[in-house]
């Protein structure tokens, strides 16, 4: 098992290499460049800018230089944010985005499973109907609608939660709205998924066996139902986490969260090559690691899977 994971971890390297190489050349294919302005930069200044960022060198040389830097985890200077290195931008934003992402995922998973269990065990009772309706809303309402609605209700009408900004301004309260908004569709989907799979497992033969053995209903659910019923949820964790990571780019703007999502959007719009590259690398790493973790959890839960 350990060997399997070391191998998986090592296989990340060629993947990353390809991602980095492709991105490096692709983003330079997009029209425009980091120094394009509505008010054109005078030629003399432009030449100096190009020199400053080694953009006057042949592309392949730039590529080699970049690969060298990245091996030392040095992403270089940002073209847009002159005062900060790309590493500084990532170092500031990544912990914020990661905590938002992880908290949202935890909310979605814990909340989704809890609601899934409640509604499965109360199938066709009011608890179930409420849960199913909430799930339908969660799945069908997009983030950029849900966010402002929650802001309006909790920030402007009830005035109990901040509309935006982060922990340094409002304390932990600041996390609630963005995390809930971000988690909501995945919470809803997980609730639906776990409800369905719990119901399916409840009908399975081995649950009948467990009951025929005289186990209490609670023991049946906790010991016999959940492990099997949660496997589809675990499988969904990979896509859910990617979705949350992508969604957080929207949510960060809506709630003024100082993560890496907002600089990502800005860097793409402004052709901030170094920053785009770093964001691509960081997001790829997050997704790759997330999938690896999901694999591990899956392997731990399902004894039928063996890693060689």
């Amino acid at each position: 098992m350990a060997r399997y994971f070391i191998r998986r971890a090592l296989s990340v390297i060629p993947t990353l290499f390809i991602v980095i190489t492709l991105s490096f050349f692709l983003i330079r294919l997009a029209p425009g460049g980091p120094f394009a302005r509505e008010r054109d930069v005078p030629e003399a200044i432009l030449q100096n800018l190009l020199k400053r960022y080694h953009m006057d060198e042949p592309l392949f040389k730039q590529y080699l230089r970049y690969m060298g830097d990245i091996l030392r985890w040095d992403f270089g200077p940002s073209y847009r944010y002159r005062d900060l290195t790309v590493n500084e931008i990532i170092d500031h934003g990544l912990p914020v985005s990661m905590s938002l992402g992880v908290i949202s995922l935890a909310l979605a998973v814990v909340g989704g499973i809890a609601v899934g269990i409640i509604s499965a065990l109360n199938q066709n009772k009011w608890q179930d109907y409420v849960a199913v309706s909430v799930a339908v809303i969660g799945i069908s309402v997009p983030l950029f609608v849900m966010g402002p609605v929650l802001q309006l209700v909790f920030g402007m009408r009830l005035k109990i939660l901040p509309i935006g900004q982060w922990v340094s301004t409002h304390g932990l309260k600041a996390i609630i709205l963005p995390a809930v908004t971000l988690a909501f569709p995945y919470f809803a989907y997980i609730a639906r998924l776990s409800r369905a799979s719990i119901l399916e497992v409840l009908r399975s033969d081995y649950i009948r066996t467990a009951r025929a053995k005289g186990l209490k209903e609670s023991a049946v659910v906790w010991k016999h139902v959940l492990k099997g019923a949660l496997l589809p949820v675990v499988t969904y964790l990979g896509p859910a986490f990617s979705g949350i990571v992508v969604g957080s780019i929207v949510i960060e703007s809506v709630f003024l969260v100082p993560g890496i999502g907002r600089p990502f959007v800005q860097s793409a719009l402004n052709r901030d090559y170094t920053l785009i590259m770093a964001e691509v690398v960081v997001y790829s790493l997050i997704l790759i690691i997330a999938n690896l973790v999901v694999d591990i959890i899956y392997g731990l839960l399902d004894p039928r899977i063996s890693y060689k």
Binding site: Y206, A212, G214, E217, G228, P303
Partner: peptide
Amino acid sequence: QNEIREIRGNKISMIFQDPMTSLNPFLR
């Protein structure tokens, strides 16, 4: 429910048709 659980698996126990699905695949 409590009383009948005392009987199930203890005084009266059952074996089912499909041994492939009647044991919980996730537990030893």
